[in-house]
Amino acid sequence: MTTPAHPTPGGDAGPGARPSPPHDPQAALSVRGLWKRFGQKIAVSGVDLDVPTGSFYGLVGPNGAGKTTMLSMATGLLRPDFGSAHVRGVDLWARPDEAKAMLGILPDGVRLFDRLTGRQLLTYAGMLRGMDKATVVERTADLLQAFDLTADADTFVVDYSAGMTKKIALGCAMIHAPRTLVLDEPFEAVDPVSAANIRDILKGYVAGGGTVIVSSHVMDLVQRMCDHVAVMAGGHVLAAGTVDEVRGEQSLEDRFVDLVGGRQHSEGLSWLRGS
């Protein structure tokens, strides 16, 4: 079954319109009626979404669809204009400390404290989470090993390549062993070998009962990796469910293009074809 391409319940009308269904207390992440406006542009308009516990959830959408804004509001990085976010039944914006402790976040487009070495940055992330020294030291070593960064553990993060930076940021999101990982574009600039390693790590994490939410442009990756998917465009969720539900008979990419639109079937750029 596919959710209709347009309004998700309670989503499309403005704030104060039809009430959304209550939060799913079992969900790893459950958001209702999220709205955010930046100046004239409405980035996210009335998003409802439930991410089942133990799922590997893909969030796809074209550039400017509101994915990052939505994830920021769902994880406490950005205060929504309206709406709420619950993490396993805990209201994030009412009890942020409790909710954030269950979340590991890889935000997109933010810098790191890059004058620290990789080891120091992971340690710092662990300390900020209030972990004890023995655990932090042990997990730091494990994470460096898992992300193949041991050789660069003592190099300043500012001198890392883009892919290494992404990996160390991912490590920072994982060090406190959160029950839910929210990863915004985790595979951007990561080389194929590292990406495969990260996928294995994430699969193992989901198999152990964790929940992963990734946003991505790469449909193929989402189709292979995720069991659930939500398609966002123009600040709305156009479809959400298991990957098979959403894509139906088509490939995810074709279904995505159908939903989002914008494909051009013209004979454009004829002059580019040479003579």
Partner: peptide, 25 residues
């Protein structure tokens, strides 16, 4: 190449808590 620093530096010298983490950073 780039710079390198051995070990934990200031982070190894302080108590492990958010406050002292921020201080070491």
């Amino acid at each position: 190449g780039g710079g390198r620093a051995k070990g934990l530096g200031a982070f190894g010298l302080v108590r492990f808590s958010p406050t002292w983490g921020v201080a070491a950073r």
